[in-house]
């Protein structure tokens, strides 16, 4: 489904600000794999997401989706196959447009956009049906401007918009980090639901170790632009936060007090 071969990316190469954001990343995800990604700030998690989505082009290496090399496909073409939710709840929706118009734009993602009305009776029913699964009452507010929604509601809507065309790959970059705990929990639950409902191949970056352990069936730990730990299946099921921290210490062999603060 998703393959990444030897991807490296350096920002500001040959300047004092040089930053090796990704160093020789290799990975392979099978259809339906749900990977949670953890790692300290600056580990390269967002950069990895951006390389997969096409917002960034790696210096070297290939990105393959369904065995097709997409590394030189521009972002807007790749996004037919990729659903994304960003950390900022404002980033995933158009605030001055209505809920149904936002959904209509997401609906058109994997199709060619045409000169036909984006919203019609049939699609409205379809949107309403999907919104009902969120249990937020949004199905009764199809004509409300999205800018009037709360951060949690907008993030739930973004998640729906990213997933309901059943993309080949779903990328979630700390999409619950900007929400209060109860909203974050709700979005986490919705995430688990939609991913299993559509059997989506998913990469989810999170700062919350417990969340990384609870969700998904595979886990990556990233540090300094590398995937330093990759665990799946039963082994992941039995993993604890302490195991993760020990593992990190073993691999990196250094004091992790400072990282603990960030990771916890």
């Amino acid at each position: 489904m998703l393959k990444i071969h030897d991807v490296s990316l350096t920002f500001n190469e040959d300047t004092p600000d040089e930053k090796k954001a990704l160093q020789g990343i290799n990975l392979e995800l099978k259809k339906g794999e749900f990977v949670t990604v953890i790692g300290s700030n600056g580990a390269g998690k967002s950069t990895l997401m951006n390389v997969i989505s096409g917002s960034l082009i790696p210096d070297v290496g290939d990105v393959l989706i369904d065995d097709k090399n997409v590394v030189h496909l521009p972002e807007y073409k790749r996004s037919k196959m990729i659903g994304r939710v960003f950390q900022d709840p404002m980033a995933g929706t158009a605030p001055s447009m209505t809920i149904e118009e936002n959904l209509a734009m997401a609906y058109a993602r994997d199709k060619k956009r045409r000169l036909v009305p984006g919203v019609n009776k049939k699609r409205k029913d379809y949107f309403r049906e999907y919104l009902e699964t969120l249990n937020l009452g949004l199905e009764d507010r199809l004509n409300a401007k999205v800018g009037l929604l709360s951060g949690g509601e907008r993030q739930a809507l973004s998640l729906l918009m990213a997933t309901f065309t059943e993309p080949n790959i779903l990328l979630l970059d700390e999409h619950t980090a900007a929400l209060d705990p109860s909203r974050a929990e709700l979005i986490t639950k919705i995430t688990a639901d939609v991913v299993s409902k559509f059997d989506l191949t998913t990469l989810m970056v999170t700062h919350n170790m417990q969340q990384a352990l609870d969700l998904g069936n595979r886990l990556f730990m990233m540090d300094k632009g590398q995937i330093i730990f990759d665990i799946k299946g039963e082994e992941k099921q039995n993993l604890t936060i302490k195991d993760l921290l020990d593992e990190f210490q073993r691999i990196r062999g250094k004091q992790i007090e400072s990282d603990k603060a960030v990771l916890g």
Partner: peptide, 24 residues
């Protein structure tokens, strides 16, 4: 209000978002 028109409006409203929804 057409599919193309909605994408044009979103381009003025939130370019990053509509690009992530496969609009050029």
């Amino acid at each position: 209000k057409t599919e193309i028109g909605l994408a044009i409006r979103a381009t003025g409203d939130n370019q990053k978002m509509i690009r992530s929804l496969s609009a050029n």
